[in-house]
C-alpha cells in the first residue's frame, strides 16, 4: 500500500483541529476550572446535529427531492447560521447539565455528566424524527463543494476554513483565560472556598465556564459534521470524551496551546495506526480478525491514559507557573 501523503496529512490536520477545539472546551472545564466533565461528547453531538439540521434543505423542497434522502427536519440555512446554532446547542445543553450538577464535587460530577451524556445519547438514538436513529443522515451539506470549489480541491479548502475558525477561537479562549475571569476560574480550581470567601459567586462562575466549554464543543461538532458530510448517533460514544481527556492531559491541562498540541499528537497517533496493517507479522492477525487493529488502537489509547497520569501528570506543555498565586499547591493531581 502506498500512501498518498498530501490527502492523508490534510485529513489528519482537519481532524486534529476539530479535536483541538474539543480539547479547548474540556480545558476550560477541567484545565482551568477543575470540573470533571465525563460527558463532553454530548455537547459535540448536540452541535453536530444542530448544524446538520439547520443547513439541510427543507423536506419537500426541490433540493430535498434531488438528494433522494429521508429526514424530517431541515431549514436550509447557510453554514454560519448552522455553526452559531451549534454553539448555542452545545452551550445550552452544557447549561442544562451544569445547572443541575455543577455543584457536585469531583467524582460525583464525573458520574453525573457521564450519565447525562448517556441519557442524551439514548434520547438521540430513540427520537428518530429528529436524528433518523441508527440510520443517520448521510447528505449533510458541504457548502461551496462542487460549485465554487472543485470537488478535488475541497479537502484543502475545508482544512483552511477549519484552521481559521479554530485559531480564531483559540485566540479568543486565550484572551478569556488570561483575563480576570480566567483568574477566577483558576481560583475556583485551586481553592473554591477561598474564592468564595473573596466574594466570588463560584457556582455561577463554574456554570459560565461549563457553558462556554460546551459551546466550543458544539462548534467542533458543526465543523466535524460538514467535514464528514454525514451524521448518526453511533458516532457519539463515550470513547470520544476520553480521547479528548487524553489530548488535554497529554498536552498539559491549563495551557491552551498545550491541549491543542495534545490533540495533534492524539489524532496523529490514532490515524497512523492504520499503517499497522502493513507490518509483516501483524497482518496474519488482522486478516483473521477485522476488529484487531481498531481494537489495538484503543488498547494503546488506554495505556497512554494510564501512563500519562502516572508519569507525566503535567503533560508535554505544563501550565505556566504563575508567581502571583504564591505557594502553589496543585490540588488536582496531588
Amino acid at each position: 500500500m502506498t500512501v498518498e501523503w498530501i490527502p492523508f496529512l490534510t485529513l489528519l490536520g482537519t481532524l486534529a483541529l476539530i479535536y483541538s477545539l474539543l480539547a479547548l472546551g474540556l480545558n476550560l472545564h477541567y484545565g482551568y476550572t477543575g470540573l470533571l466533565n465525563f460527558g463532553h461528547v454530548a455537547f459535540f453531538a448536540a452541535g453536530a446535529f444542530a448544524s446538520a439540521l439547520a443547513t439541510l434543505p427543507p423536506p419537500g423542497s426541490a433540493a430535498y427531492q434531488e438528494l433522494g434522502a429521508r429526514y424530517q427536519i431541515g431549514f436550509g440555512w447557510p453554514l454560519p447560521v448552522g455553526m452559531a446554532l451549534a454553539a448555542v446547542a452545545g452551550g445550552a445543553l452544557a447549561l442544562l447539565i451544569g445547572a443541575t450538577s455543577v455543584r457536585l464535587t469531583s467524582h460525583y460530577l464525573a458520574i453525573a455528566t457521564f450519565a447525562m451524556a448517556e441519557i442524551f445519547h439514548s434520547f438521540l438514538s430513540n427520537e428518530e424524527w429528529l436524528t433518523q436513529g441508527v440510520y443517520g443522515i448521510s447528505v449533510v451539506p458541504q457548502p461551496l463543494k462542487g460549485t465554487v470549489i472543485p470537488v478535488s480541491q475541497y479537502p484543502y479548502f475545508y482544512l483552511l476554513f477549519t484552521a481559521i475558525t479554530v485559531f480564531a477561537l483559540l485566540f479568543l479562549t486565550q484572551r478569556l483565560t488570561e483575563s480576570p475571569f480566567g483568574r477566577v476560574l483558576r481560583g475556583v480550581r485551586e481553592d473554591e472556598l477561598a474564592a468564595r470567601s473573596l466574594g466570588k459567586n463560584t457556582p455561577r462562575v463554574k456554570l459560565q465556564a461549563f457553558t462556554l466549554g460546551g459551546a466550543l464543543a458544539g462548534i467542533a461538532g458543526s465543523l466535524w459534521v460538514h467535514f464528514i458530510g454525514a451524521v448518526h448517533v453511533g458516532q457519539f460514544v463515550p470513547l470520544i470524551t476520553f480521547q479528548v481527556w487524553l489530548a488535554v492531559l497529554m498536552g498539559g491541562a491549563g495551557n491552551n496551546l498545550g491541549v491543542v498540541f495534545g490533540a495533534f499528537i492524539l489524532v496523529a497517533f490514532r490515524e497512523s495506526t492504520r499503517f499497522l496493517n502493513n507490518i509483516p507479522l501483524l497482518d496474519r492477525f488482522t486478516a483473521a480478525n477485522p476488529t484487531f487493529v481498531p481494537s489495538l488502537r484503543f488498547v494503546i489509547i488506554g495505556l497512554l491514559l494510564v501512563a500519562i497520569i502516572r508519569f507525566f501528570p503535567d503533560g508535554v506543555l505544563p501550565e505556566r507557573h504563575r508567581k502571583a498565586i504564591g505557594t502553589r499547591q496543585d490540588r488536582r493531581l496531588s
Binding site: L36, S106, L239, V299, I301, G302, L305, V306, I309, S334
Partner: peptide, 15 residues
C-alpha cells in the same frame, strides 16, 4: 487522591 485513579480506571477499562 481520587482523580488520577479515576482516569487510570478509565484507561484500564479501555485496555
Amino acid at each position: 487522591g481520587p482523580f488520577p485513579l479515576l482516569i487510570t480506571s478509565v484507561g484500564v477499562a479501555f485496555i
